[in-house]
Design a protein around this nucleic acid. Structure first.
Lengths: 155, 155
DNA sequence: TTAATTAAAATTGCATACAATTTAATTGTA
DNA sequence: TACAATTAAATTGTATGCAATTTTAATTAA
């Protein structure tokens, strides 16, 4: 690849990631709207369905989001009635997020979403399942790198 | 993969794309700041360095962005002095974007960015170059799918 | 034990993204 | 030729994202 090629849009991995991420998120919209969720609140719920009672900090570490994004998002989820926000009794700095009954019940309705979404992506013969698994694994390797480099930033 | 697994965050390809895209864009920031560019204005410049004189619509098709995002972005690039915006003489609906001399000169300074960025991602032994090429190819397949599905949306 | 430091959320300000609507220009058609 | 339909930008409104700062609580060190 010569000098000039490096600036070509087609060679930018980040641009491809950016486009694919945005386009898939657009496809989530009609599936999430009936549940009163946006994509960001959806991944927050996914995380909480796996483990709730976590602090904003812990949730942010999992979702790669900071309090500037999470605070208003979680306030809305509380208003919608899916979660409650309570200060930790032992350390008042921590705000802990708990699923409400309504929030727990939502999981059942959410279960059909991944399948519906995959339908709109997989169909056709562009990508087979093994290629998607390989994709996910490569991305997870990258994510682990970001986690590691964030730690070293603090040093 | 059983029912419950589908909602696990680790199995969401979109979440992995979303995180990787955001984290890489963060790494661009310090490299782009000296050039007075944000990530979005950077990809707009990348596209214009390949081909300028295009309409907002054409640029939007290339970047997967709409006029709601591009109009304010391009106005800023015009103020910075990298581009000029001129209505097409033959069809006044079209706004054509041209690089200024300053905008063309910027390309030289931008040439070191892809290399610097890759350094901050590749280093270590998590991802080798062939894996990144495979990643890019898979993402390009997905992008072509999005293009195709957008066309069919209009039908 | 108090002052300095650290830590977690919240806040502020700026830059996207995009759906939906509006405005202006062009095209197709009766 | 009028006029409806279409098209391209721009505008409006909502929801992020994140850097930087502020606020409050807890911890550490003098």
């Amino acid at each position: 690849m010569n000098e000039n090629e490096y600036l070509k849009l087609d060679n930018q991995i980040c641009f491809a990631l950016y486009v694919c991420s945005k386009e898939i998120i657009k496809k989530y919209r009609p599936l999430l709207e009936p549940l009163n969720l946006t994509y960001t609140s959806y991944i927050a719920m996914l995380s909480l369905w796996e483990k709730d009672g976590v602090t904003v900090k812990e949730l942010g570490d999992t979702l790669f989001l900071d309090s500037g994004t999470l605070t208003p998002l979680l306030k809305k989820l509380e208003i919608t009635g899916y979660i409650s926000r309570k200060r930790d009794t032992h350390d008042e700095r921590n705000l802990r997020i708990y699923l409400t009954e309504k929030g727990k019940e939502l999981k059942v309705r959410a279960e059909e979403i991944p399948g519906n979404l995959l339908c709109s992506i997989y169909t056709g013969n562009y990508c087979d399942s093994s290629e998607m698994i390989k994709l996910r694994d490569t991305l997870h390797k990258l994510m682990r790198k970001f986690l590691a480099s964030e730690k070293s930033d603090k040093t």
